[in-house]
């Protein structure tokens, strides 16, 4: 007889299967019916899919037993300790350190430096482009650090999230009018690339942990919102960086 425990262990695998089926269907549909080409290298693709499947299931299981509990436990400890300065430093470092080395951001910053050089915004030399790309990366990383910090402050002092976001949107609109044309696309995209696969669960656990250990906060209303800050602030900061470079 299959024990319940055994089935329980296989549940993440089944769920991963459900999550990946749409991608396979999309690829097959477009390959066979629209482009009318056979899928090249079927074995390689099957092997890859099995890896994706097992990897996703492992990742989710690891989140449940490792990342989520430790993130929430640390949030509880910070509240018990009662020292806001350490908590804010923790929030800033969590945002900054995970963003500064983010591969998607490095790729985007490299491309952005080429655009800027082509447009004559910066000196078209290796050194000029490298320093621009590094400046962009640091700008985004600092802004994500500040975003997580501000998000934690919001939970502590209980500001309503939507007012913060609406103010943020107004700033984005205002900055768009002032920022150099070449940087706008990059700025808008930088909001999306900053929050990576490991940062998101960690930051979510921090927010939910904080909101559930401070009296009078509702975890579902107050615990979320950190990632919203982290995807809005980089837009504003990157446009500011563009304005600052021009002046």
């Amino acid at each position: 007889m299959i024990s319940r425990r055994f089935l329980e262990n296989f549940r993440p695998l089944l769920e991963s299967m459900r999550d990946l089926t749409p991608i396979v269907l999309v690829i097959l549909f477009f390959q066979e019916l629209v482009l009318q080409q056979p899928v090249p290298n079927m074995e390689q693709m099957l092997l890859g899919l099995i890896l994706v499947l097992v990897g996703l299931a492992l990742f989710i299981r690891g989140l449940e037993i490792g990342l989520f509990p430790i993130g929430e436990a640390m949030a509880h400890s910070f509240v018990r300790k009662g020292n806001a300065a350490w908590l804010l430093l923790f929030a800033f470092l969590l945002g900054f350190s995970t963003t500064v080395a983010e591969p998607a951001l490095i790729a985007i910053a490299g491309k952005a430096s080429r655009i800027a050089a082509d447009a004559g915004m910066i000196e078209s030399s290796e050194a000029g482009m490298a320093s621009y790309a590094l400046g962009l990366r640091l700008t985004v990383a600092v802004s994500v650090g500040i975003a997580i910090l501000l998000g934690v402050v919001r939970i502590l002092v209980n500001w309503p999230l939507h007012y913060c976001i609406i103010v943020g949107y107004c700033l984005v609109v205002g900055m768009t009018a002032l920022a150099p044309h070449e940087i706008i696309g990059i700025a808008y995209d930088s909001g999306g690339v900053t929050t990576s696969t490991i940062t998101v669960p960690m930051v979510t656990a921090l927010g939910v942990g904080l909101a559930s250990s401070i009296r009078g906060r509702n975890p579902i209303i107050d615990g979320f919102g950190l990632i919203a800050f982290a995807s809005l602030l980089p837009i504003i900061f990157v446009m500011f960086y563009g304005i600052w470079l021009l002046s």
Binding site: I23, M45, L47, L49, L51, V52, V54, G55, I198
Partner: peptide
């Protein structure tokens, strides 16, 4: 360990198949 291993397999599979 699960999270890290899971990400490695996931990324390898994506690069292989998708």
């Amino acid at each position: 360990i699960y999270v890290i291993l899971g990400m490695v397999l996931f990324l390898m599979g994506l690069e292989e198949a998708i």
